[in-house]
Amino acid sequence: MAETRAHGLLQRLARGDRAALGELYDLYAGMVHGLAVRVLKDASEAEDVVQEVFVQVWRQAGRYDPLRGRPEAWMCTMARTRALDRLRRRASRREEPSEAAPTPSHTAMPETALAVRAALGSLSDDQRKALELAYFEGLTQSEIARRLGEPLGTVKTRIRLGMLRLREALT
């Protein structure tokens, strides 16, 4: 349901209808913020990411192609990219998160997000761990192998099988 509504809002945005941005914000700001908080663990940086993502959505709504994916996947990709950028910048300055971040709520999650959580829950712990290091910490396959002290081939297989499982569960 939220998805159909989001498509309509994105079409209105593409026509330059500013009011639609507020409605889209109400629908997805909690999700975008939740992702940014999870990656950055810093309240003020996570807010900046939310602002950047919605300004980007406003600018690029005309380019959103509903055939290529769900609006929440599109927005999560933007949020993840920007949050990981900040994480790497912070790492290069050897900074720690400055403000304690609020804890996410899993009860207010929309149905599609619950489906993703359930699918992640069905993976083995090893698969989920490797996938989450790649997604939320932005580590590459070799970095994950070093972090876990596992052979590279093992890590690649875990990520591949985990993604395959998610794909089957979600499509």
Binding site: E47, C76, T77, T171
Partner: peptide
């Protein structure tokens, strides 16, 4: 598309009240 949806599993964190106005002003 699958990767994009992993992000939604992080959970919902309601942003602070003033952020909505700041976002609309920035847009």
């Amino acid at each position: 598309e699958v990767a994009g949806r992993i992000g939604a599993s992080a959970g919902v964190v309601p942003p602070p009240a003033g952020l909505r106005d700041r976002v609309l002003a920035a847009a």
